[in-house]
Design a binder for these strands. Structure first.
Lengths: 205, 205
DNA sequence: TAGATTGTTAATCGATTAACAATC
DNA sequence: TAGATTGTTAATCGATTAACAATC
């Protein structure tokens, strides 16, 4: 499987399929068709079958997909059969909220360290994580080799922090700061900015 | 301008242009070319010019774009020359963080009410907003006609709350719950789920 | 005028959908 | 076997890029 030959939009839909399959498992469902998945998710059944076909054949003609099999296959494709360590930089209100969010660890993402530059925050503990001074980042991240960072600092500090994280060996950044970051080739970047989402919405209202 | 004739991907890029233009204004820049914008944002200059051309001609050949003019034009296209009222439903850690986030009001989105179902939370005040019991939603939202809701409740309650909000006249929902919501035609829905973002990233790591 | 950059058209590239043979 | 649904191909649709005439 040549990763670069698979459209990124396709990869980005797999987690949505996983989310729905998890729900079906909890409901005790054993089989699901592409059509039923499609109705639940508001996409076309053809798209689901096409997406899956990039990675192989997971279904049975005339029947559909075994829920658990398909779930495990997708988890394996996305490398989710392991714990991914994550560092969090910026322990303001949002950073604190993310530290106490159960959804990360429940899905195999473990926040193992948190950093801030505010002396009033450094040393405090949130959800079992003691906040370390941001000047100590190098010493803590590099040796441990943490692959993913969540960036929840003010926009003004985001690029500087991103640069530092990358120097520390971080390979992917989930950026919450409202700014477009520059990262070198090979570093994965994803952005979350609720204001941008709202500003798209208001066009249609 | 026929809204439906403009690709949604184009509309979704305008807020990014606005973000950069705001920064250029703060830096005192008066003129910018599509090429410089493109370099900053990591897109092609042709794409920027093409995107803008859906809405008109905003630049001057040989010179570029007047930063303030373009910014105001884009703000006007996205209906950002007004205060948009927003309700927030679900005042857990994330909801509290969003209530105290300055970025919304700084960009013209005013959270005017917040609701929760937890008796320990109802009645408390966060960032000047007193939390109301979720059973009172109808009484408060309908008369005021708030167009936008931010949904930060657990996944299990999200669909039920979305349905209620829509019955209260809400026209757009920014959903933070990790679930695919069903909304009627004509209701705008945007989703923010950091776990989905991370699960896409791990494919490439 | 000479140089630069826009706005737009046409070409390319990529993603989605429709349709159906294969097959359970 | 009859009915249902997958996996895949070809057709359609849409978005991006390249190129350049227009023009400041």
């Amino acid at each position: 499987m040549e990763k670069s030959s698979i459209p990124e939009v396709v990869v980005a839909r797999l987690p949505v399929y996983i989310q729905k399959l998890n729900q079906l498992v909890r409901e005790g469902r054993e089989i699901v068709s592409s059509q039923e998945m499609a109705e639940h998710l508001g996409v076309s059944s053809a798209q689901i079958r096409k997406d899956l076909s990039f990675f192989g054949g997971f279904g049975k003609q005339g029947t559909g997909y075994n829920v658990i099999n398909l779930l495990e296959s997708l988890r394996s494709i996305l490398n989710l059969n392991q714990i991914w360590e994550v560092v969090l930089v910026g322990v303001g209100h949002l950073g604190q909220a993310l530290l106490s969010y159960q959804g990360f660890s429940r899905n195999g993402f473990e926040i193992v360290m948190a950093f801030d530059n505010d002396p009033k925050i450094v040393g405090k503990t949130f959800a079992g994580i003691k906040v370390i001074d941001v000047n100590e980042m190098q010493n803590h991240i590099c040796p441990r080799g943490v692959p993913i960072a969540i960036l929840t600092v003010p926009a003004a500090n985001a690029q500087e922090m991103a640069d530092q994280l990358i120097r520390c060996g971080v390979k992917a950044i989930l950026n919450y700061a409202p700014v477009t970051l520059k990262v070198p080739e090979g570093i994965r970047l994803a952005n979350i900015d609720p204001v941008l989402s709202l500003q798209t919405i208001t066009f249609y209202l």
